[in-house]
Nucleic acid binder design. Sequence first.
DNA 1: AATGAATGAGGATTCATTCAT
DNA 2: AATGAATGAATCCTCATTCAT
Lengths: 210, 210, 210, 210
Amino acid sequence: MTGPQTTRRKRANGVESRQRILDATVEIAGERGYDGTSIAAVSAKCGLPASSIYWHFKDKDDLIAAVIERSFETWLRAVELPGEDAGTPLERVTMMAANVARSLVAAPDFLRLGLMLALERRPTEPRGRTVFLQVRETAHQRIAEIVATLFPALAEDVVDTLTTYAVAGADGLFVHREVTGDSVDLVALFELHARLIHDAAARMAAPAER
Amino acid sequence: MTGPQTTRRKRANGVESRQRILDATVEIAGERGYDGTSIAAVSAKCGLPASSIYWHFKDKDDLIAAVIERSFETWLRAVELPGEDAGTPLERVTMMAANVARSLVAAPDFLRLGLMLALERRPTEPRGRTVFLQVRETAHQRIAEIVATLFPALAEDVVDTLTTYAVAGADGLFVHREVTGDSVDLVALFELHARLIHDAAARMAAPAER
Amino acid sequence: MTGPQTTRRKRANGVESRQRILDATVEIAGERGYDGTSIAAVSAKCGLPASSIYWHFKDKDDLIAAVIERSFETWLRAVELPGEDAGTPLERVTMMAANVARSLVAAPDFLRLGLMLALERRPTEPRGRTVFLQVRETAHQRIAEIVATLFPALAEDVVDTLTTYAVAGADGLFVHREVTGDSVDLVALFELHARLIHDAAARMAAPAER
Amino acid sequence: MTGPQTTRRKRANGVESRQRILDATVEIAGERGYDGTSIAAVSAKCGLPASSIYWHFKDKDDLIAAVIERSFETWLRAVELPGEDAGTPLERVTMMAANVARSLVAAPDFLRLGLMLALERRPTEPRGRTVFLQVRETAHQRIAEIVATLFPALAEDVVDTLTTYAVAGADGLFVHREVTGDSVDLVALFELHARLIHDAAARMAAPAER
DNA sequence: AATGAATGAGGATTCATTCAT
DNA sequence: AATGAATGAATCCTCATTCAT
């Protein structure tokens, strides 16, 4: 099936095994969350015995954190930010929103698992949660910079509020699609979201006009 | 041994025990989600033995569903919708948003647990998830009616989209507060949210003005 | 076999189960020490499933500690201290030593497991070890009192040293028998031990005689 | 690739690795006993991977046995027996006891691990236990010879009993120190031990005196 | 002379649930 | 209206050991 060297795959290939484990884990953790992800289930899905998982990852926490890290990178790669400097602010903002929407449809694992982790409050916080929140904080700042560039007249705290609002809206729309199903046109909703924020920013940036 | 209704306190008070169990469960399930909520933990928190929990609830699924139902009612009671008919559409929308924000700060369990359940995808869907989604669908429709009333000129599908957007934004802002902490001014963010939606609705309702 | 009510023993008898578990545990722990005692082995020996053991004992540490406590009581009961006031000091000391020797042959679990625990040094000390050392400290003091009563002329620190020496000798002789087997006449060795200590005490108590 | 004996340090130094493994193992086994000593822990402590340990030792049993052997040699080297023929029997016996006491303080691993192994009773006896008991039997005989030399009048079985008593006392005092801590003056206790035995031997060797 | 990777068996402990009282 | 006791399945993780390189 897999072509040559299928000679009873056993010849110790660390890198590939690690990937297989991570692949299995995103799938399960993305659907069931931290507690719902059992090592036995991961083992069954990836074909390696549970004890092998512990060769590659210190413990479950480490595994989930690694999943978050890798799925973030996967998602980042899915967000292509092409020709950012073309067009009016509205056009640019809309295009970026559409891009993000498309990336979330293509690679939803990162945000889906991340939000689940984020909502949980357990005595000893999973490392994956910390990683997710850090990554998301970085994203927040990058978006804030873009907003500040597009609307230089806005005060810093206004930029921050708008960014928070932008991210929150993205989260909420994503959740909506996750709950409602594939029929939701996430791109359209994100474009609407972008337009509303753009208009608000434009109005706030030019109060004299009123 | 004891006659009926002999109000012999401490012996057999079904209603109070049920409440104690539910109280303990909201707290745990609201923090840990479905899988993270163990009967043993609930038992420890409410002081009743595990077997007693099974006297009051068929199984864990039933317990969680009951929690969702009760915390929804609690939350509903927290959303007072007074004098809805006073003021301009913007004022009314803003006030409603602020009310909802306040209720979510006061009784966050419902939405917090609900979102956790909503995000999970497990083979046999918990009844609690179904309940949450139904309740939320009802809420969606009620909001849509209000939007339609305030902006009669809007087409039905536009009303629906705006409602979806309104709810999604609320979810996202709620998540933001849950993640970031009490320092977030949820009321202000909800008011901003309301204003943006109002403006969009107003513009869409009067395209000629443009 | 066991007479009446053998009707499929399942009728929840907490006290008896607890005893069965403890009985199984002394036997195993007395032979294998802390790490060598697996819950599965205890379960197999007592017939109750592992999970039932956890109904009766918080964890393995708790179980081992309970074993130490109970086997100490068993051993205490085996040490009968009859007519302590008869005869010369030598006679009395010798008889006491013989009694202890006999009790150690009859109920060796306490000291055997206790010594194993005492010799181990693990990061988090087992509660059983603490219990053993406390009990043994109490025994030390009681013996010291007897020595002081029999030889009132001895200084306090001399009494203490002799007591330490007496207990250490007992430990060592016990270990010797454990290692060498039943052929060792522990009573005779303990009587020799008693005589040597008595002579030393007598000589120390009356230095003038020299 | 590298020529033989090219003293190309760091690559393949079997002897040093073996020592590092043994060093790590004494430390762990001396604290935790047979079952408490895991290959993983040894690996972590010595820095070599677990598989390397299996290159040097057949299995865990072999490793523990090697540790016993080496720590016995270490301890033997610590017991210097200088000028044994000087002085009275009491002086000689006392000096020897003090020497042993000092060696046990300096190199306690041998006896500590040995006693732990000796007390355990497992289905398949560890080779380390056998080694320990053999070594100790040899020691017993050597001590018996010395006793016989010092007190030629003693019957053979009396010599044997006194030797047993001497060794047992040493064990017990050692355990006492292990349990109680460094504050115990093991040398003084061993000297007392030696004196009591000497006096007993002297008295038994000259019954006429009575 | 070593080691990265793998693995089945077993470790302690918790799970949701039941049942007799 | 409750609960003490029990239980099999599952939990996470470590065990000693092997094997190809």
